[in-house]
Nucleic acid binder design. Structure first.
Lengths: 252, 252
DNA sequence: CGTGAGATTGAAGTAATTCAAGACTAGTGG
DNA sequence: CCACTAGTCTTGAATTACTTCAATCTCACG
C-alpha cells in the first residue's frame, strides 16, 4: 500500500516551486512509494561512465553534476535541488558524476521499471519528455551564459536563476541559499574562485545583493540583477525586424 | 550551386556518419516522401519564439542556430549539417532562430503528424528519444568547452568535432568544409572574430592544420588536435580513484 | 581588372587569472 | 568555554589571455 500521507514537510512544501501542479503530482507519485537513499556531503551518487541504471528524484539536499577533464580541470554541468530529477537524460552510461553538496535524501527508480511504466502511458511519456526538453533548454541557456556574458553578468544570472528554481523569487525579500562552495560556483560559471568572490563583493558594494555568511544571498534589486543577467529567461523573443544583425550571405 | 559536388547522393553518402544504420534508415524513411523546401543563404527557416509546428531534416546545406541577446550580441547555439535534424527538442515555441548558412534543401514534418506516427510506435519513440539525448550530450559538451577551454583548445575542439560529424575523420587526409563565416565560428565559440583568426593561424603555424582558402581546413596532426581539445569526446571516463579532486565537505 | 565583404595581422587596452597574503568560520580538543 | 586549527573565503598586486581598435590583405564576383 502507498503511504497514506505525503512526507511531512518535503513534498508539499517544496514541489509547488518546480512545475505545474498536475505535473508535479504525477511524477511525484512515481517516486512516492520508493525507499529513500541517503548520502553524506561529498559522497558520489554515480560516476561518469557508470551504467545508467536508475533515475533519481531528490527529496532533500543539493547535488553537483560534473565532468573532470584529462588534465584535472573540473567542469560543473549543473546543480540539482530538492524536488528536481537526476539522470533522466542519460542513456547507456551516465555522462557526468553526481555528488552530494549537502547531506541528501533521494529516491531511486530503475530505468527498466520506468520504461515499463511509461510503455503504454502517453501522459507519463509526455511528462518525462517535458522534463528532458526543460533540461535541453537549461543547457542551451547555460551555453549562452558561458559564451556571451562577462563575469558579473554570469554571477547575476546564476543568482536570478537560483532564485527562480527554488521559488525564492516569489517572496520578498528574495533570500536564496547557496550550499555549494565558491569553487563549485566558479567551476559552474567558467571562472576562478577569486573572480567569483570579487564579483559577489562588487554586487554587494553596488547594492544589488546582501551577503549573509557564505551561503545565503539576499537579492535586493532583482530587476537590476535580471537586466545584468541579460534577461535571458524572461525576455520576450527578439524582434524579428528590429534585429541589428545582418546575416552574412553565401558565398563569402 | 554550392556543394553540388560534395553531395552527389545526399542520403546514402552522408547518413552513415550520423548514427546506427538502422536508426538512420528508419528516421530517413519518415522524411523521404516529404516535399523539399529550399532556402537561400542567409534566409531564416524559423525564428526564436515562433510556434514550433514542424521538425526538419536537412537534405543539403548548413544552418546556424542562434539567439540574440537584448543588447544585440549573438550566441550561436550550434550548426546543423546535411543529414541532421532540426527543431526536435523544441516544445511549444522554437527556442532559437535557424538560418541558412549555405543554400539549403530540407524536408519538413509537422509535429502533430510526428506525434500521431509515434503514438503507438515504441521503436520510433526510442529513435527520437535517442536523438534528443544526443542533443543534450552535445549541449553539455559545449558547456564544458565554453566553461573550461582556452581559445586554442576551443578551436581545436571545433575542428575535431566538425570532422567527426561530417565523417571526414574516417578518411586521410582529414579535410573539412566550414561553410560558416569566421564571425559565426566566433559567436559559437564565445570568442571574437580576431581571436578565431589568430588561433587558426597559430594552428597552421604549428603544423596542426593546413588552411585552404576560407572554408576548407585540413587536419594534419589529428591526434595533437584531439589532445588540445581535451579529448572531450573520445576520452575514457576519468579514473574514479585517481581523480586529483578532493570534493569539499558540507558544511564549509 | 576593379570592387567590397570578409579575413588577417599588429598594437593598445581590458577583463579575468594567477600568485600571494590575510580574514573568517566551523569543527576540535583542551 | 575558549583557543587552536584547517579549510574556505576575501582582497590586493602582478601577469596573461583575450578583446578592441585600426590597417592591410584576400578572394569571389561583376
Amino acid at each position: 500500500m502507498y503511504t497514506s500521507h505525503l512526507l511531512p514537510s518535503a513534498s508539499s512544501a517544496t514541489f509547488p516551486a518546480f512545475g505545474l501542479s498536475s505535473e508535479a503530482l504525477t511524477l511525484e507519485s512515481l517516486f512516492a512509494s520508493l525507499p529513500v537513499d541517503k548520502f553524506a556531503a561529498g559522497e558520489g551518487v554515480f560516476w561518469e561512465g557508470d551504467a545508467a541504471s536508475d533515475i533519481f528524484q531528490i527529496a532533500e539536499g543539493c547535488l553537483r553534476l560534473y565532468r573532470i577533464l584529462p588534465d584535472g580541470r573540473r567542469a560543473i554541468i549543473g546543480f540539482r535541488f530538492a524536488g528536481e530529477m537526476l539522470g533522466l537524460s542519460c542513456e547507456g552510461t551516465y555522462c557526468y558524476t553526481a555528488e552530494a553538496v549537502t547531506p541528501i535524501r533521494l529516491r531511486r527508480l530503475s530505468r527498466a521499471r520506468l520504461r515499463a511504466m511509461s510503455e503504454g502511458d502517453g501522459q507519463l511519456q509526455s511528462l518525462l519528455l517535458a522534463k528532458v526538453f526543460e533540461e535541453i533548454r537549461a543547457a542551451q541557456q547555460h551555453i549562452v551564459v558561458l559564451g556571451q556574458l562577462g563575469a558579473e553578468e554570469r554571477a547575476a544570472h546564476f543568482l536570478v536563476s537560483a532564485a527562480r528554481r527554488t521559488g525564492a523569487d516569489r517572496k520578498r525579500p528574495v533570500v536564496i541559499e547557496l550550499p555549494m562552495t565558491r569553487q563549485d560556483i566558479a567551476d559552474y560559471l567558467g571562472l576562478t574562485i577569486e573572480t567569483v568572490c570579487r564579483v559577489m563583493s562588487k554586487l554587494k558594494r553596488d547594492g544589488l545583493v546582501t551577503l549573509e555568511g557564505r551561503h545565503r544571498v539576499i537579492l535586493v534589486r532583482v530587476a537590476d540583477l535580471q537586466q545584468l543577467a541579460g534577461e535571458l529567461d524572461s525576455a520576450e523573443p527578439w524582434e524579428r525586424q528590429a534585429s541589428p544583425w545582418c546575416p552574412p550571405q553565401w558565398p563569402h
